[in-house]
Design a protein around this nucleic acid. Structure first.
Ligand SMILES: [Mn+2]
Ligand SMILES: [Mn+2]
Ligand SMILES: [Zn+2]
Ligand SMILES: [Zn+2]
Lengths: 149, 149
DNA sequence: TGTGGATTTGCAACAGAGTTGCATTTACTA
DNA sequence: TAGTAAATGCAACTCTGTTGCAAATCCACA
């Protein structure tokens, strides 16, 4: 005797949400895209390819390359954004607004965790050298996170 | 009949300077360290391992690995600093003050060139999440450099 | 509901940046 | 000048991400 799992399993709801987000933009639905985006929607941190792969094991097995391509696609389409930090590894996070919004990041020097500081936008008050044009500004605060202090 | 080249070749002067800088701190002098640091002292941009290797060809041939180790050492000792940008490659630049000074960077979106914006220090006016401690702040302005505009 | 054809996937091989182990050479100390 | 710790060269390796291509899948349209 089994109850409907829809309302008890938040992951399933996120899969529904991911599917709707992709369908709403008129893009093709595939298991890889849904599971990856759902996973990213469930996570506050910016996570690596490797972490996503680990998290998705069992639930649905993908090829590494497919995951790389899905992440590239999600980024291009604006469902997620990505950033590189001191360990030279891409990290991905679902965009919280419909389209990517500029915001600062926090990077823990000990555990390498990366957190998006949503709603904190960077600015600078100095003049660039002559002829230089600013397109975007990236601000990363490095330090120790709450668990590593 | 040959004149003394010391005053006509600025590279030689920089080698002297590099040697003095290292000796002044009581560290070991090696050809790799001197030529690498001299090259970096001659350059305003932050340059990659690959660029340094190219520039040093002929003058003095090093093993790739030695250059990696020299750069790591120069960074640890505070003679240079390094940063990673969107192409996930380390870039190095000699420190203009005796010890590393925080400053912002400019990254060209077209030619990938990286420029240190010396004397422009970053700051942020927002509160970090509870328990988070800030150690350093990294500000990167991305856009088009004077040659790429 | 079935089907054609563009998209996506899996697999294998590849690429670039950086690292490690170890024997040999070098720089400095005494 | 000899002894020793540190730096170097070389080969093999790791890690992250890419590319080519044939097979599978999605979906617009009949
Ligand atoms: Mn972010
Ligand atoms: Mn710099
Ligand atoms: Zn931490
Ligand atoms: Zn440029």
């Amino acid at each position: 005797m089994q109850l409907c799992c829809k309302s008890t399993n938040p992951l399933v709801n996120l899969q529904k949400k991911a599917e709707e987000m992709i369908r709403y933009r008129g893009e093709r639905i595939t298991p890889g895209r849904i599971h990856t985006l759902a996973m990213l929607l469930s996570e506050r941190r910016a996570v690596t390819h490797h972490e996503i792969e680990e998290r998705l094991k069992g639930e649905h097995r993908f090829d590494r390359v497919t995951l790389y391509r899905v992440l590239e696609w999600l980024n291009e389409k604006g469902f997620v954004h990505r950033l590189v930090n001191a360990d030279r590894v891409w990290r991905f996070r679902a965009n919280i607004h419909e389209y990517s919004q500029p915001h600062a990041h926090f990077e823990c020097l000990r555990c390498t965790k990366v957190v998006c500081l949503d709603d904190f936008e960077a600015a600078h008050d100095f003049e660039l050298p002559a002829g230089y044009r600013s397109r975007e500004i990236e601000l990363t605060v490095k330090g120790l996170c709450a668990e590593c202090t």
